[in-house]
Write a protein that binds this DNA or RNA. Structure first.
Lengths: 376, 376
DNA sequence: TTGTAAGCGTTATCAT
DNA sequence: ATGATAACGCTTACAA
């Protein structure tokens, strides 16, 4: 364990400070002794004690990466990209996840600060505004906004994305698009996408459905449930749902029967209040386009479609954000948008390190990355 | 930044030691002063300086998690599981990836040691034997083996897995199974699976194909290429490939034409020498089963099948390891094995922490987790 | 160019 | 039960 500067100094008959300088500030040491020291250091495989160094320097080269969810493969990839950049530039990345929980985010922040991180890239949650408001090390926000407007921000241009998506679906002939969104109160990117909807071509109708869930698996399950509800509501479109409590039963099969029973109450319990009302939204015009605004929503939607192959006949146009990697493996194509998170992540980490190194002094900026349409 | 014990001590007119004890060893301090101190500590939101603590204690509660590849969603999930366990038990997880590169693995190990990690869970690479041979902190190996036989190991029972897989395919009527494997020289799990093949029911024929690649994306691409080669070779089964250099051209479309040209040389460049020889393996009997032994291989195989929908008529039985999450999204079912890595990861982290805490003293053990057949 | 010495914030030891 | 003191390994004025 403990080979220390002292011991090296003793072995080479120089002072500890000379050894320290040979390692950390080579230009302050004569070529001859420098080489002698470095050679010996290399030989015995000496590794400086980072704790001691950080304590003395009152700083570190540790950068924090705070993510909401590593189970999301897009985010995991972004994490990988950022770690690599940090490494290449001589920093030590520390990655933590919050699972959208206040307690975990607060604890993670504590640990980061205790570890003396010199900066952080975060995917902010709805709690981040409160938690990060008074942190005075460089912070860069990725994918979402804390609305603190104090940090550099890198994310997709949600307004452009929504416009590209809806334009495509309109061009495909859609007249009534159901838009599946996550929790707009808790996740800023969904909020932005929701608001962007009102700025889209308004010659057609949009029915936004807003899920409450924030965890990946729950979003998938609820999106599946919601899709089933929408499709079954289409099927019995003249139905006055307000009058009856059950829309339909999917055949129980060997699934947990509780979950597969679709009810109006079950649906409302999963949606935020300002969702479109399923009881009315298909009255005038059937839904002919389905727009999922992230990967998990798309996954859930596909679960529903796979469980009900007969829906294919209804010829509903599909579109999803996030370009899920599994699209490559599907035997049919779904139109999508390129997911610029990887690029945003790399820019975010570089920006953070530039700030840490003082290469950027200007006021924080918001960088919106424009996605591209990916469709045959 | 720096609220220190000293300042707290001064403010409360006690000595720094008392404050330190109130925090780290409360039972050594009278109830009265303890509460007074803790209350104040809480009020001003004091956070101990971890560097100073680690330096003084000559230890830490930092545990390392060293993974080959975060882009693999199964591994990312395992990482998440391990981080959560470490947190819950009061440890601070530090996650690093090696991308199967010696340099990155060596550097990551350095950083871990410099950070004073008190233990590590690693997914060993072919280099880990050399790198970790002389490390004397607790280490647990996940998913693969370094063959050091010094550490606890948690992974799937590859022999059982191969038997379940081949038994299933045989039961489905297969007589000749092509087995797609990764780099058996570099990745111990593929080696184990390869060797397990010879212990399977030998009433039928197996043709193992061994890819060289170790990176996720390259495995996918090469598995796609290999699948195309196999299928096209089937189509022209009487062909003497040794006599002609090009098997076939897939229509160039807008893809990079270079990649889509399948040649014998192109194939050999991607395979290890002891692979089955495509020129001979379909002579006696056509391949009627395709067994992919991890998620990436399956992904590549599906790419190939999607690009050539006419192959569906050949009614080749598919089976894959790893239960890729995208199977849920496919409109058809592929038989698979449960992927016990999540469970293994949780056991591995708990085992590591038990060792660190001295709760386990016995000699290191190998734990093989038996997978389950997942098929309709 | 090199050495000396002080100190970063914490905790272990010893003494009270 | 509490306080004084030294020490963990490293860096950095300052001195030589």
């Amino acid at each position: 364990m403990g080979t220390s500067l002292q011991e090296i100094a003793a072995a080479l008959h120089v002072s500890p400070s000379t050894v320290s300088r040979a390692i950390s500030a080579p230009h302050l040491v004569s070529a001859k002794t420098r080489e002698r020291i470095l050679k010996y250091v290399d030989k015995i495989g000496y590794k400086p004690n980072i704790s001691a160094r950080n304590l003395r320097r009152q700083s570190s080269t540790t950068v924090g990466i705070l993510l909401n969810d590593l189970d999301d493969s897009i985010i995991a990839h972004a994490a990988n990209v950022m770690q690599n950049i940090a490494f290449q530039r001589g920093y030590f990345p520390v990655l933590l996840t919050t699972d959208e929980s206040y307690d975990k985010e607060a604890e993670a922040l504590d640990r980061m600060l205790m570890s003396n991180v010199c900066g952080m890239v975060i995917i902010p949650s709805s709690y981040s505004g409160e938690l990060f408001g008074s942190i005075d090390i460089p912070i860069v926000e990725l994918d979402r906004s804390s609305f603190l407007h104090r940090h550099d921000e890198f994310r997709m241009d949600d307004t452009a994305a929504m416009q590209i998506a809806t334009d495509y679906l309109i061009q495909q002939g859609c007249k009534h698009i159901a838009v599946l969104l996550g929790n707009i109160d808790r996740v800023s990117s969904f909020r932005a996408r929701y608001m962007a909807l009102s700025m889209c071509n308004n010659s057609i109708r949009y029915s936004p459905f807003l899920l409450q869930a924030t965890e990946t698996q729950k979003i998938i399950d609820d999106a599946c449930y919601l899709t089933q509800a929408i499709m079954q509501c289409q099927a019995k479109s003249r139905l006055d749902l307000a009058m009856q409590e059950a829309i339909d039963h999917t055949p129980p099969e060997q699934e947990s029967t509780e979950e597969s029973l679709i009810t109006l109450e079950g649906l409302q319990a999963r949606l935020l209040p300002n969702s479109a009302d399923l009881r009315h939204c298909t009255r005038d015009r059937h839904i002919d386009g389905l727009l999922t605004t992230n990967q998990s929503l798309c996954t859930g939607m596909l679960h529903a479609f796979n469980a009900n192959p007969e829906w294919a006949e209804q010829n509903i146009k599909l579109f999803t954000f996030d370009n899920p990697s599994y699209l490559q493996v599907l035997p049919y194509r779904i139109a999508t948008l390129s997911q610029p998170l990887e690029h945003a992540a790399s820019m975010a980490m570089n920006c953070l390190l530039d700030r840490i190194e003082g290469k950027i002094q200007e006021h924080a900026e918001v960088h919106l990355l424009r996605p591209e349409l990916l469709a045959d």
